[in-house]
Design a binder for these strands. Structure first.
Lengths: 110, 110
DNA sequence: CATCTACTTGGCTAATATGCCAAATAGCCA
DNA sequence: TGGCTATTTGGCATATTAGCCAAGTAGATG
């Protein structure tokens, strides 16, 4: 395989891998709505704050979120505003599993 | 957190996790173009055929590909035709890492 | 039937991810 | 300064993943 192609595939995989966790998806969904500090996200997720901090670190290193320290709180926001659209196709995979393969073909993942 | 929401996040995460590997992304890209048998994909990837078979199994279980045995070869194809569009936003994450944050805002991830 | 090819599965090791606790860091406020 | 709150980091146990080899299965073909 082409070296450049390989590097590109690896880069894409890193981003997807960073997203591929329920708590991190929740974070992304919430940050779609508005920025949040770590303790707010921690409360939504219901895990140890250190765990949430590490999830945020994964997302930051992948370039998905950015942080912003204000006072003694750290606010996180999405760096890329199109994450929700990004999910359309994931949804159609899920719908197809449920037998409703129609949605995507009908334009659900445009 | 809402039980239903949790289940939904987990379902999404499973799909993303299935995609989050360079070899599996290559498989998806190639199957965008045309169906392929295991040995063709194996040659493109350059790993052991058993490894590739396991990657395909991951994708199949996630509902991303379907298989079709013809003769003694097994052909794989995408179940969901919108995978390439799905990547637009991943790309904009990567571009933003490279400093070119413009692309997505300018419509690159529509 | 014997054998070949194509593929899958089992088993193993090494690497990576997850999540908690405890300790360290940083800013605020008395 | 001292103590408080918010967050990050280190360390550890456990779980999951990746990849190879070897063995098993299934269809094709002589």
């Amino acid at each position: 395989m082409d070296k450049e192609r390989k590097a590109h595939l690896e880069a894409r995989a890193r981003v997807l891998k960073a997203m591929a966790h329920p708590s991190r998806l929740l974070i992304i969904e919430e940050l779609e709505k508005t920025e949040r500090c770590v303790c707010e996200l921690t409360e939504m997720i219901g895990a140890d704050i250190s765990t949430v901090s590490k999830h945020l670190s994964v997302l930051r290193q992948a370039g998905i979120v950015a942080d912003d320290k204000r006072g003694n709180q750290v606010y996180y926001r999405l760096r890329i505003p199109c994450m929700l659209k990004f999910f359309d196709c994931v949804e159609s995979v899920l719908e197809s599993q449920a037998g409703a393969r129609v949605a995507c073909l009908a334009g659900g993942c445009r």
